[in-house]
Design a binder for these strands. Structure first.
Lengths: 237, 237
DNA sequence: CGGGCGATTGACGGTCATCAAGCTGTGTGG
DNA sequence: CCACACAGCTTGATGACCGTCAATCGCCCG
């Protein structure tokens, strides 16, 4: 079995040997709670480009990402798309106060998630302080990311957007694995464009420009930071 | 005493007669809890353009907005600004998982807030399920707003941005008071520009265009929706 | 070898930013 | 009461950045 670029380690079928446990919402549960929790969740696999849930869905399970990368996005009626985030192992997807998800989620490459049924989960969390606090932490962190991204979308040039994207993505991967100057980019150019509020052509041109400037090398499946300091400088500006 | 455009009703000095209680984080507290809660919070007033907190602040009280409007924003080193949201009465400000606020907050016009000390609040909330759930609800709602705004910033034209801004702002005010076709805009053109990722000139031109097209009337302190359906249509697109 | 998809490159144009006046309303002081 | 100043807003002229359209490339796979 080929191990995923985005696996944290080997993943068994039970919560007890779940490799992302410490990163996930489950880190707030003790052994007994986890045993109960295991009854309401189920491991589900998706292959590349499959939809995990859609913005108009009215059934609202939660998903805890175990392995792989997921894109979260919103579609406009005319087809324009904005990716609001990429989810990595440990991330919790599908929290909402409304009667819809509000965002859609697709697997980028093969994905494993824990699907958590809504009603049992609501019952389970209703009187679990640690779990509520953990959810709070995850949602608040996500809100902070969202606000940072608003600054990027509203006030940054194309070159800054790309540089920030590379720096941030590398930093997020570094939370799960060791950092190197090689930054794997499992998502397509179109995904990057829709994440940064650009077109695919502008993304491509900007990558090429950074390569010509000796800042990065474009390699299959990602980029290599030839001059990490300059990437950071472009991102800080 | 002149009542604020953005007051929900008369506001006394205690939680018991707080007019925004039902909208705020406090709606989760029963009478006894509220009495305790009152000990950790204090009403504070700010006048127009005063800073409530700054993104680099390391003391982290929470603020529950009681009256007035606050702009939340982030500044880049070179002075570019992105407003990430406008807060209205009932909104909770200052939640963070980090050691900084991450955003700055200024009063737009006179403002009243409940300032809630961080450590006592953490103790108070640590074992209060209803309060934790309520905070969850508020933060999740804010995250949804943030994601909607990302779509606007990344994928909408100037005209769509303005139309959506008017529709959304009117809808938010409608949660607090009756809706009319008159939309008060207490914030400056510069604020609107920094919220929508535009320049002040583009905002001004777009307002003028909408007025020429018979969609809105520009009036002192706001706009009047002359043709609400067309504004909605521009916003939906 | 050829089909097909994603990525790159080029030419061109539009939207919106920039720079610069001019306008409007409000407060101040003679 | 009017002149003046000032800040916020509007309007105009110009151009840059990035979007659009189109062709080509590179790679994988049949």
């Amino acid at each position: 079995m080929k191990t995923s670029l985005f696996a944290v380690g080997s993943n068994g079928q039970t919560c007890a040997d779940c490799a992302v446990r410490e990163f996930s919402v489950c880190s707030s549960l003790d052994e007994a709670e986890m045993h109960d929790f295991e009854q309401l969740s189920r491991r589900v696999h998706f292959s590349a480009c499959e939809r995990v849930f859609a913005q108009e869905d009215m059934s609202l399970p939660l998903f805890s990402l175990v392995d792989g990368v997921i894109r979260l996005y919103k579609l406009l009626p005319d087809g324009r798309r904005q990716i609001v985030g990429f989810a990595l192992p440990g991330d919790l997807l599908g929290m909402t106060t409304a009667d819809r998800h509000g965002v859609s989620a697709d697997a980028i490459g093969p994905v494993t998630v824990c699907r958590i049924a809504q009603v049992p989960f609501a019952r389970f969390s209703a009187d679990n302080l640690n779990l509520l606090r953990r959810i709070n932490e995850l949602v608040t962190r996500e809100l902070n990311r969202a606000r940072d991204h608003m600054v990027l979308l509203g006030r940054r040039s194309a070159e800054e957007k790309i540089a920030i994207f590379l720096v941030d993505w590398r930093a997020r991967l570094a939370e799960l694995r060791e950092t190197t100057d090689i930054v794997p980019l499992p998502m397509s150019r179109q995904d990057i464009a829709d994440y940064l509020g650009l077109t695919i052509e502008t993304v491509s041109r900007t990558f090429t420009k950074l390569e010509r400037d000796g800042v990065i090398d474009i390699i299959p499946g990602g980029v290599c930071l030839r001059n990490p300091a300059r990437v950071e400088a472009l991102a800080a500006a």
